[in-house]
Amino acid sequence: MATSSSKNDVNWGEVEKSEDFKTLKNEHRSFVLPLSAAFLVWYFAYVLLAAYVPKLMSTPVFGNINLGLILGISQFITTWAITMWYVNRANKVHDPLAKKVYAQIENGDHK
């Protein structure tokens, strides 16, 4: 709770304009925004296939297991994969950058 007393003194605009903060923000956005667009496109491609070409989705692949089931389960797999990818990157890249800016504010670099 050490931060609460000095909170009002921080020049937020200054922090926002600093190079380190811009790097932090750009790093986050340039990763999450394209990735979100990608998984949403993949999800809706799947939904549209199921809605408009159910015949294709019922193509058997192994015995009773058809293309629709495989694509459905692959949505699960991509969700888990993206989760782990994001977490890895957030821990390795995002957190150190955030800590750096945090420390600058704490030190009173932006009053």
């Binding site: 931060t3 921080v10 937020w12 922090v15 926002e16 903060f21 800016v101 945090y102 504010i105």
Partner: peptide
Amino acid sequence: SEMTVRAYTGY
């Protein structure tokens, strides 16, 4: 500005 900085740093 405060919101943006706090959102990204947790400050």
